[in-house]
């Protein structure tokens, strides 16, 4: 019974009932007053006072929660939030609760998470190659290269093999920042075979490095962003390109900022990207990979699914200056994802 009163529908009916009773009472009291059966206007004033109390209660118990629900629905419709509609404290009615439950099943986090993770792997690999076949082949190439005295080829093959092993194997959600940075450096090392010393990577720790490296972050968070910076930012740049990964922490957050001094984004592209990051949609899975930015949206969605809507990516960019991607994550050493 107590739970039922949480519905807006019940509150609205209670309000209608209270108003009807008060209206009827005031009519009866006015009639009695006119008839002279009651002499004091106190009773009428008391009913008026009760009416004010009922209206005030209706404002706080009906209008305010209704406005909130309406706002959440607007945000849901525009893709800003999924969770808030499920967690709604004052639902419209019982049917709405059922509908939210159904919605929760449809938006099953695990299923979307898996789809998202697969997409990340797909983006990293570009095609579906049997992993074991790939590792064995790469090991074979490496052995041949070492036997032939081609150290560079051997090193490159080893880096590629390590990169694939990290990307495909161990499909856990969270890894330590150290592991993710190692993979990113490894990826960068492979790219340097292509770009030579034209591109440089720096990692800057604003706080205690040893401590920070233990923090858990979603797997394949940094590498896709670094890849994006190289492909869309530095590759088209004439001259030297610099990549900087800045790591900051506060009491509850871990901030990773990947900055490049590449060509930057045009305003319309940036706005589109920011829109994709601030709203939640899985439309990007269908997008053409050449459009760019899929990796960023993917990472953003995974972070939001794992930790909550307040975390995720923020992008700023300017033509000729470069692009900054800031990743906001909860500061945690635990394996469990925290919301």
């Amino acid at each position: 019974m107590g739970k039922k009163k949480q519905y807006l529908e019940t509150r609205l009916l209670s309000f209608a009932l209270a108003i009807t009773v008060l209206f009827a009472s005031s009519l009866v009291l006015a009639f009695l007053y006119r008839q002279g059966r009651i002499r004091s206007p106190f009773y009428i004033l008391f009913v008026l006072f009760l009416s004010v109390v009922v209206v005030a209660a209706a404002y706080y118990r009906i209008y305010v929660p209704y406005s909130r629900t309406k706002h959440i629905m607007q945000l849901f419709a525009t893709g800003y939030t999924f969770q808030a509609i499920i967690d709604e404290k004052v639902p419209l009615n019982k049917e709405m609760v059922e509908l939210n439950k159904m919605l929760k099943t449809l938006l099953n986090t695990d299923q979307i998470m898996n789809a998202s993770k697969r997409q990340a792997q797909f983006l990293a690999l570009q095609n579906q190659i049997n992993p074991h076949f790939l590792y064995n082949t790469l090991e074979g190439i490496r052995s041949e290269a070492l036997l032939a005295g081609l150290d560079t080829v051997a090193t490159m093959t080893e880096a590629l093999s390590t990169f694939f092993r990290y990307t495909i194997s161990n499909v856990e959600n969270l890894v330590s920042l150290q592991q993710e940075l190692e993979n990113t450096k490894n990826y960068f090392f492979i790219q340097q075979f292509r770009f030579g010393n034209r591109i440089k990577l720096n990692i800057l720790f604003e706080d205690d490095e040893e401590e920070v490296l233990q923090y858990k972050i979603p797997k394949l968070t940094l590498q896709p962003i670094v890849e994006n910076c190289i492909v869309h930012g530095l590759e088209c740049k004439v001259g030297e390109g610099n990549l900087l990964i800045r790591i900051e922490t506060s009491q509850s957050r871990l901030f990773l900022t990947v900055s490049d001094d590449g060509v930057g984004m045009q305003d319309d592209v940036l706005k589109q990207m920011q829109q994709s990051l601030s709203t939640r949609s899985f439309e990007y899975v269908k997008r053409d990979e050449h459009q760019g930015g899929i990796a960023l949206v993917n990472v953003n969605n995974r972070i939001k699914l794992l930790f909550g809507e307040q975390y995720g990516l923020t992008v700023t960019s300017h033509v000729g200056v470069g692009t900054d991607v800031m990743i906001s994550l909860p500061r945690s050493k635990d394996e469990e994802a925290k919301g």
Binding site: E211, E248, T249, S250, Q251, S252, R253, Q274, S278, Q310
Partner: peptide, 19 residues
Amino acid sequence: MREEVFRLEQVSIPPYLHD
């Protein structure tokens, strides 16, 4: 680790503030 005094996350008030 530094102590944070203020943090604004994805704050939007269209048309004045965006993300």
